[in-house]
Each structure stands twice: as C-alpha cells, then as structure tokens.
C-alpha cells in the first residue's frame, strides 16, 4: 500500500471536509432557528410552554450526543423509513444544537436588566413588542461571542456522525487509515483539519468577548 502519497491522503481528507463543513452549517442554522423557538418557549409567561422547553434542554444537554444520533437513526427507522445516515445526522445535530443555543440565549435575555422590561411595559408594549424592540436587540449583542463559541462545539459534534456511517472528515480518516495503515499521519491530519476549522472560530469568539467587555467597562 505504498502507492498512497501524503498528497493522496490530504486530497481525500479535503474532499470529505466538505461534508463536515456542510453538516456544521446545516446544524448551526437549523439549530439556530429551532433554538429561537426553544428560547421563546423557555421564557414564556405561561408554565405549560416553559416546562416542555426546560425538559427538552435537560434531555439534550444531559445525554450523550452519540445516543441522540443512535435514537434518531433507529427511531426514524421504526416508522418504516430507511434512514440515510446524513439525514439522521442532520436531524440529531439540529435538535442538539437547538437545545444548547436556546439555553445560551436564555442566559443572554435574562442578563438584560429588569428595568428594561418594566420601562417598556409601562409604555404599553406587549410582550412580543418588548422582545422585538427592546430585549432582543440588547441580548443579541451579548449573545454573539458565546454563539460563535458554540459553533466550535457543533463542528466537533459532527465527528460523531461518522459512527452512524456518515462519511465526513473523521469517517474518511478511518477509511483511509484502513487502506494505508498510517493511523498516526492520517489522524494527525484529521485533527489538524478540525483545528483549522475550529481555531479561527474560537479566536473570533474570544476577541468579540473582549471587545464587549471593554465597551461595557467604558460606561
């Protein structure tokens, strides 16, 4: 198996990297949309909306992502649908991301001073109007750094989809390892590729956080 050059390995990994990136994007965007719904339910005035959202978050944050992948994979199978790995991967990661983003954003909304709710209420705004015009614009500002930070977790989370057979970066690494018997090089490169995706996100998150801190201290 000496006909595998380093370039061959890199080329094949780069090829699979596309799927890691795509799955990350889908999970992040889809998780963001559902995460907003989770957020709204979580901070709703009515208990019957808050409770399911809380349970949802507890469930997805309190169990392994791998189990969630298995459950979606085999759970959808129960309905007689033969589920392709990419679909199960996408569904599970979207649901998982939604739980985490919903909880992160709840923290941001709750960090907004109570006086903002009261002032806007005293002006006759409904809860939705308060959210839309007063609370969310402020919460959004402080939500950006942790949200970008969490995108790193999403990218890393996609690695687990290799286990249900979705061929992304990690799975490609395993396949190439089996063909080349060079696990040290291959997994080293796989790790480097993940690092190249995640590190800029981590740095951006940290930079934004510092900026927010500075602008906060200035008033």
């Amino acid at each position: 198996m000496t006909d595998f050059t380093l370039w061959d390995i890199v080329r094949n990994l780069l090829f699979a990297l596309r799927w890691t990136v795509l799955l990350s994007l889908v999970s992040f965007v889809g998780g963001g949309v559902i995460g907003l719904l989770v957020l709204f339910a979580r901070i709703a005035k009515r208990r019957f909306a808050r409770l399911p959202a809380k349970l949802y978050i507890e469930l997805f944050q309190g169990t392994p992502l791998l189990m969630q992948l298995f459950l979606v994979f085999f759970g959808l199978g129960l309905f007689g649908i033969s589920v392709p790995a990419w679909l199960a991967a996408g569904v599970a990661l979207v649901l998982w991301t939604a739980a985490f983003l919903g909880e992160i954003w709840r923290g941001c909304v709750e960090a907004i001073a109570k006086g903002q709710w009261e002032a806007s209420a005293s002006l006759g705004m409904s809860r939705l109007e308060q959210m839309r015009h007063v609370i969310l614009p402020q919460a959004l500002r402080i939500a950006v750094p942790p949200t970008v930070g969490f995108s790193v977790q999403v990218v890393k989370g996609t690695a687990l989809t290799s286990i249900i057979g979705f061929i992304e970066l990690t799975k490609a690494g395993t396949i190439i390892t089996n063909a080349t018997f060079q696990p040290f090089t291959v997994y080293g490169l796989v790790a480097l590729f993940y690092f190249a995706l995640c590190w800029p996100l981590s740095l951006t998150s940290r930079l934004l956080e510092r900026k927010l801190h500075v602008s906060h201290r200035h008033h």
Binding site: A113, G115, Q116, E118, A119, V134
Partner: peptide
C-alpha cells in the same frame, strides 16, 4: 423610574 431605564 429611579434608574431612568432608557433603552441603551
């Protein structure tokens, strides 16, 4: 309000 509570 005491604390003004302007929208920052």
């Amino acid at each position: 309000f005491q604390q003004f509570n302007l929208f920052p």
